[in-house]
Design a protein around this nucleic acid. Structure first.
Length: 611
DNA sequence: GAACGTGACTCAGAAAGTTCCCC
DNA sequence: TGGGGAACTTTCTGAGTCACGTT
């Protein structure tokens, strides 16, 4: 941890060289927080900023000096269903105990989803549900197929409908209540500065879904009690109160970590945390540091690439595997691919690829040495790609696959730990995931410079940006389900375009006529008419162009998620510099949340920034 | 020193909620 | 101008990465 802080301090100094105003962001944010909290306001001064900022730094792994918060916000307790909403077993109404009914409502609420029809889901749910039943209920309710949740389901559908149809005033009251809770629980004081918390609400109980074919889907996610929660805060400030009649599992004062509260979830036994919002200083610093590491890789990447290419011909199989794995991570932006527990969905990354996930083609579609990838990656998103590779890589892959079955590991001699150890030797701080950040940001910068032309309109520039962003999303395989309304909204848009074209044609005709009339008998009136018609044509043409751009953008974006790369992989300074250079308002690219998260970059970057 | 487990953090898409825009 | 739906934003929480300690 020490080395990180030393590195961060170095980083800040370097960045200060780059732009002496680099620390203004933090001072400005503090000033904003101070206003809210009626604390003495820090003044926006540039010369002292760096010093002021460094004063707050810790070099010994400490993340904060003081941390005060209200603890997590618990979900409301369960309330019985009205007696008019029956649960039926084998056609007969059965009055359920509180806990049994609560779990039944979790299932009933999900009936619309396709996954409740899956066997794993049903069986996991039923097993866990029976565990919360009373002895009598267990004796009676033996088959899920005999359970009728439809009345409960309809009840919640109706309630949702009612909520939707509330009057403006009723909705306003509800919003005020939410805002009040957010104000109370949604912020903490970190080193005296008000910071937004990311997830201050404890996860409510429900049924675990998981992504893809998760073996634990349908299991009961239990209600978290105060007795399960560890509070992390400073010793000398007010310690959060547990709900009345309860106590915390523990209160600790560990300032080497950034979380405010934690608990262990019951599905996998993993720890869950309450942490700060991405707009916070702590997260901002870490984000900045991430991009600086990726920038460092830029300076070293040629050497690293030469090295892993050499490894392709190494005598030791382990070295060859490392060389090829790194090549994939670098060229295809694959994730590292840690080993996973058996009780999770079967997904893989680079190091955990199995023989069955690739097919080798000596020739394919006019190309030589093609590797066809087909596997499920993070979140069970399919990765499918046909990539021509270098001959030596191809030969190595053949070698790695020799005498192996489809379910054997392709890279059986290496692990992510080993890979990262080697990477760290090549460049301190370098790990497999840095390649994703590096390649994503590099791609954005290249694409932006390729796609942006000075005389473009702002709309065209935005399309260019989206296209550059899209290139990165494709590289990183960031996919989304096509929006449910996609086809319909596309049709609407196409209809609009058709109509606009028609209008434009008509307007052109009218202009022609007006011009003719003006030529034949020029008067002030006819001249004005020509002007008016010219304006109309121009306006319609612009509108048409805008719609067509929209169509292209939407079509190209159908199954691609741009948000993930924008938020996590693209150095925001590239975007800010591009906006400044091409006079595109940064608000057109980043929404409010994104501007908050990237405030550090917005403040410190000028148009000359190069990743 | 390798295998394993744990902890802390980043990254991920879906769903819910809100705003905007057009008829 | 206001209602409806599309688009955008925010929230939610699951799924990864990676460091580190223990065996």
């Amino acid at each position: 941890m020490k080395k990180y802080y030393a590195a961060l301090c170095q980083l800040i100094q370097n960045s200060a060289k780059f732009n002496r105003d680099s620390c203004v962001y933090f001072v400005r944010k503090y000033a904003r927080a101070s206003e809210n909290m009626l604390m003495p306001r820090l003044v926006r001064v540039n010369t002292k900023t760096k010093q002021q900022w460094e004063e707050g730094k810790h070099t010994d792994g400490q993340k904060w000096k003081s941390l005060e918060h209200k603890g997590p916000l618990f979900p409301p307790e369960y309330e019985h269903l009205p007696s008019s909403v029956p649960f039926l077993y084998d056609g007969e109404p059965v009055k359920l105990s509180m806990s049994t009914e609560e779990v039944a409502t979790f299932y009933a609420k999900m009936l619309d989803h396709e996954y409740t029809s899956k066997e794993t889901f049903q069986s996991n749910f039923f097993t866990d549900w029976r565990e919360v039943m009373t002895e009598d209920e267990r004796k009676l309710i033996k088959k899920l197929s005999k359970c009728d949740f439809s009345h409960i389901h309809s009840y919640f559908v109706k309630k949702a409908e009612e909520k939707k149809n509330m009057t403006k005033e009723e909705k306003q009251v509800l919003k005020e209540e939410t805002d009040k809770l957010t104000e109370e629980y949604g912020y903490c004081l970190l080193d005296g500065h008000k910071e937004k918390i990311g997830n201050f609400r404890l996860e409510p109980p429900g049924l675990f879904r998981g992504r893809g074919e998760h073996p634990k889907m349908g299991k009961l996610k239990k209600r978290v009690q105060p007795e399960d929660v560890i509070i992390n805060c400073s010793q000398d400030t007010k310690i959060p109160e547990p709900p009345s009649g309860h106590r915390w599992k523990r209160v600790q004062h560990d300032n080497t970590v950034t979380w405010l509260a934690s608990w262990v979830e019951n599905i996998h036994g993993h720890i869950k945390y309450i942490m700060l919002n991405p707009s916070s200083k702590l997260k901002g610093e870490k984000d900045w540091q991430k991009y600086e590491t990726a920038r460092k890789l830029k300076l070293r990447v040629d050497g690293i690439r030469s090295e892993y290419r050499r490894a392709w011909r190494a005598r030791e199989m382990k070295q060859r595997q490392r060389g090829v794995a790194l090549y994939f991570i670098d060229k295809l932006a694959l994730r590292a691919g840690n080993e996973k527990d058996d009780d999770t969905a079967d997904t893989v990354g680079c190091c955990s690829l199995r023989v069955e996930h690739i097919t080798l083609h000596h020739h394919l579609d006019g190309q030589d040495y093609v590797v066809e990838f087909d596997f499920l990656g993070k979140d069970s998103i399919r990765y499918y790609n046909k990539v021509p590779v270098e001959k030596q890589v191809y030969k190595n892959l053949k070698l790695f696959m020799e005498f192996k079955g489809p379910e054997d590991d392709l890279f059986d001699r290496i692990s992510t730990t080993y890979l990262n150890k080697k990477l760290n030797e090549a460049m301190p701080g370098l790990t497999a995931k840095v390649f994703r950040t590096f390649n994503a940001s590099t791609t954005l910068q290249e694409q932006l410079s390729k796609l942006t032309v000075d005389d473009m309109t702002v709309e065209e520039k935005i399309l260019a940006y989206n296209r550059a962003n899209r290139a990165v999303a494709i590289l990183c395989n960031h996919q989304r389900a096509a929006p449910k309304t996609f086809e319909k909204s596309m049709q609407t848009l196409q209809e609009k375009i058709r109509k606009k074209k028609e209008d434009l044609e008509n307007a052109k005709k009218e202009l022609k006529q007006a011009k003719k009339a003006h030529k034949e008998c020029p008067t002030e009136k006819t001249r004005k008419l020509v002007e008016k018609k010219e304006k109309a044509v121009k306006r319609l043409a612009e509108q048409l162009k805008k719609l067509q751009l929209q169509e292209t953008d939407r079509e190209e974006n159908k199954v691609i998620a741009l948000g993930t790369s924008k938020l996590n992989y693209l150095d925001p300074r590239i975007t800010v510099a591009w906006c400044k250079k091409h006079r595109v308002p940064v608000e057109k690219i980043y929404n409010k949340t994104q501007r908050d998260k990237f405030a550090w970059a917005i403040d410190m970057t000028d148009e000359h920034f190069q990743f």
